[in-house]
């Protein structure tokens, strides 16, 4: 089943820059997909359109059955509840503990406290941070902060997890730890879409890779096909 379907997407920013040009893309449920490409090739624009931070100028975006492009401003939360997003700079609330940061995502949805507690403990365990639940972001390492961010992104059980260069600020070892966490999450059935510059990771993971170039797909490598040396 298709989770993401993009048809003939065009995105032109107000200043006249064309970020995405005639892009078609289908991603199935449960896939793990890397999006790579040079800076400015439209990677960030592409994923921002998926969680409706940007709107396409033309084209149709269906994510989990929702027509994202047509979603009105005050209905944006509908798509956000189906998607988890992780950023390079973690985006944690500095004045909340790891636990509170994760619980925050459920509190805004109005879940009862006991349910929140159960879910947060479970997900912190999944990312390996059960012991550090009461630590504040400033007391955690970069890798740990990113794991909190991942925990927050998946605590709501989204179908899709979007990662925008999640390892951009981390050393290779820590990066691989994050990748292990993501792989585990993927195995539980969550589709993962990851934008990255880190070719080493892409080489090691042997997943589907989409190479973007100046706003359109240059090559779509199937699982295991991609090898940076062959380019």
């Amino acid at each position: 089943m298709d989770l993401i379907r993009l048809r003939n997407i065009n995105k032109v920013y107000k200043n006249g820059v064309t970020a995405i040009h005639n892009l078609d893309l289908t991603i199935k449920k449960g896939e793990f997909v890397f999006i790579i490409g040079k800076t400015g090739c439209g990677k960030s624009t592409l994923i921002k359109m998926l969680y409706r931070e940007e709107k396409p100028t033309k084209g149709k975006i269906i994510v989990g059955g929702i027509d994202v492009a047509k979603l009105r401003n005050r209905k944006v939360y509908k798509i956000r509840r189906k998607i988890g997003v992780v950023f390079q700079n973690y985006q944690l609330l500095p004045k909340c503990t790891a636990y509170e940061n994760v619980a925050f995502a459920l509190e805004v949805l109005g879940l009862p406290k006991s349910k929140i507690h159960r879910k947060v403990v479970k997900v912190l365990d999944l990312v390996g941070l059960k012991e550090k639940a009461k630590h504040y972001p400033s007391q955690l390492s970069g890798g740990e902060q990113q794991r909190v961010a991942i925990a927050r992104a998946i605590v709501n059980g989204p179908k899709l997890l979007i990662c925008d260069e999640p390892t951009g600020n981390l050393d290779p070892n820590t990066s691989m730890e994050i990748m292990e966490v993501l792989t585990a999450i993927n195995k539980l059935g969550t589709t993962i879409l990851m934008v990255t510059h880190d070719i080493d990771i892409v080489n090691k993971m042997k997943k589907r890779v989409i190479l973007l170039d100046s706003g359109s797909i240059k090559k779509d490598y199937k699982e295991g096909e991609y090898n940076s040396e062959s380019i």
Binding site: Y77, Q91, L109
Partner: peptide
């Protein structure tokens, strides 16, 4: 972040 995790505008 509130927007990101799916809080509605009223929320």
């Amino acid at each position: 972040i509130m927007r990101l995790v799916g809080a509605s505008n009223i929320n």
